[in-house]
Simulated scan of single mutants.
Amino acid sequence: MSLPRNQPRCGVCTSKLVKNGKTSAGRTRWRCKHCGASTTKSRTDITRKAEFDAFQHWLAGTQAQGGYTIPRRTFRHRIRWCWNVAPALTPTGEVHDQIMLDGTYFNGWCVLIAFTGRHVINWQYTDAEKRASWTALLEHIPAPKAAIVDGNGPLQTIVKKHWPTTRIQRCFFHIRQRGNTHLTRNPTLPANKELLALYKALMDVRALDKAAAWTAAFASWEAKWQSFLKHRTYAEKSTIRPAHVSPNQQWWYTHIRTRRAWKLLANLIRDDELFTWLKLAEDGVIISRTTNPLEGGPNKAIKDFLRAHRGLSAPHAVTAITWLLYHRTEHPKDAWQFVKPTDWAEPNKRRIPPRTDTGRSETNALYGTSFSVEDGTGIRKGWGGRSG
């Protein structure tokens, strides 16, 4: 929003005013040459812009409210209208080589973010990562060549539905994290030790020939421990049922955690989601193998902001995070362009009429004209503090 020119007019005859010195407070005095009226003018737009700039500076930093030159309460009072302003994101329709997708939780909310590795494309607020919320985010974004995801089930389903031509790359960091969850960091079984070594070796694969060697080593592990993976435990009276076993189940796999760690890698190889980044590199398309740029970029910025500005209400946190994400888009506009004069307009305060009915007929006639016996201010006897 552009600032108007400093050409005030007379409030009496609407003629243009001219400068006529300054007041004792240093403000410019204006005088009408037509009728002689003198006045001073205040520029509300300039004042509001200064307040909005302070609001934006506070959001972008880690300084406490009012940590500048004014008390906190004064600062909150001045910027209270700034929470009414929110940026509007205009889709560009650009097709990207890669888009990283992830959600982060805060104050009972979840924000889903689409990130190219350098800038934010779009975001969506929801209560949890589910199909409807992922659909609302992806349907406004053209299908990229590759999507880097962390393994969220609803997300992968929606990606395959709305972006059928997009290749999926599972984040290596989350794969390794899942392996540690299933196998622990110090497994005791020989099969688990060998499988954990394969998880660790996966992080060193950086070429297609090494990827083929790793896949062969994983196939050898499957052949070696095939019978081990099929071990079963049958239900008996003295058998303790694990938490994942239903009451009517007659048997279950003994090494369930080993099977989960094995199934994770087997499914990734089957769906061709493990070495997508290497195969696309052969065609000249360079993508990331992890969502670390998103985790260490927008997600970390959100966590750091909420940690520095504790105590925000949920609506204020949503507004602040919206500004934080908008400033990480490719070409953000000046924030002042989203401000309208109606945003800083003071709401009309509803006046509460005085209560004239006290509930007792003998005092209604005296209300507002004399003291009442209910006030306790009638004729008194004695001396306060004196006994006897």
Score class of each variant (00 low, 15 high):
156 Q>W: 03
157 T>R: 14
158 I>Y: 06
158 I>L: 04
158 I>P: 06
158 I>M: 09
161 K>V: 06
161 K>Y: 08
162 H>G: 05
162 H>T: 09
164 P>K: 08
166 T>C: 15
167 R>D: 13
168 I>R: 10
169 Q>G: 06
170 R>I: 00
171 C>E: 04
173 F>K: 05
173 F>N: 08
174 H>W: 04
175 I>F: 00
175 I>P: 01
175 I>V: 12
176 R>V: 12
177 Q>M: 13
178 R>E: 12
178 R>H: 14
179 G>F: 00
180 N>S: 11
180 N>Y: 15
181 T>M: 12
182 H>V: 03
183 L>M: 07
185 R>H: 14
185 R>L: 14
186 N>T: 15
187 P>Y: 07
188 T>E: 12
189 L>P: 04
192 N>W: 11
194 E>Y: 05
194 E>N: 07
195 L>R: 01
195 L>G: 02
196 L>G: 08
196 L>H: 07
198 L>Q: 07
199 Y>L: 02
201 A>L: 04
202 L>W: 01
203 M>Y: 10
205 V>I: 05
207 A>K: 09
208 L>N: 07
208 L>H: 04
209 D>S: 09
210 K>T: 13
211 A>F: 00
211 A>K: 03
211 A>T: 03
211 A>G: 02
212 A>Q: 15
212 A>M: 05
213 A>P: 00
213 A>K: 09
214 W>T: 01
215 T>L: 01
216 A>F: 01
218 F>S: 01
219 A>D: 12
220 S>Q: 14
222 E>I: 01
223 A>T: 08
224 K>N: 06
224 K>L: 05
224 K>S: 04
225 W>Q: 00
225 W>R: 00
226 Q>W: 07
227 S>V: 07
227 S>H: 10
227 S>N: 12
227 S>C: 04
227 S>A: 13
229 L>K: 11
229 L>A: 10
229 L>T: 10
229 L>Y: 04
229 L>P: 02
230 K>H: 11
230 K>P: 00
231 H>Y: 09
232 R>G: 03
233 T>M: 05
234 Y>W: 09
234 Y>A: 01
235 A>N: 09
235 A>M: 10
235 A>G: 00
235 A>H: 11
235 A>P: 01
238 S>Y: 08
239 T>S: 07
239 T>H: 02
240 I>D: 11
241 R>M: 14
243 A>P: 03
243 A>I: 15
243 A>L: 13
244 H>E: 15
247 P>I: 09
247 P>L: 07
248 N>C: 09
248 N>R: 15
250 Q>C: 08
251 W>F: 15
252 W>E: 04
252 W>A: 02
253 Y>V: 08
254 T>C: 01
255 H>M: 06
255 H>K: 07
256 I>F: 11
257 R>H: 13
259 R>T: 02
259 R>G: 03
260 R>Q: 13
261 A>T: 00
261 A>R: 00
262 W>R: 05
262 W>L: 02
263 K>Y: 08
264 L>G: 01
265 L>D: 06
266 A>S: 13
267 N>R: 09
267 N>P: 03
270 R>F: 11
270 R>P: 03
271 D>Q: 12
271 D>C: 08
273 E>C: 10
274 L>S: 03
274 L>G: 05
275 F>S: 04
275 F>G: 05
275 F>K: 03
275 F>C: 02
277 W>Y: 15
277 W>A: 13
277 W>Q: 11
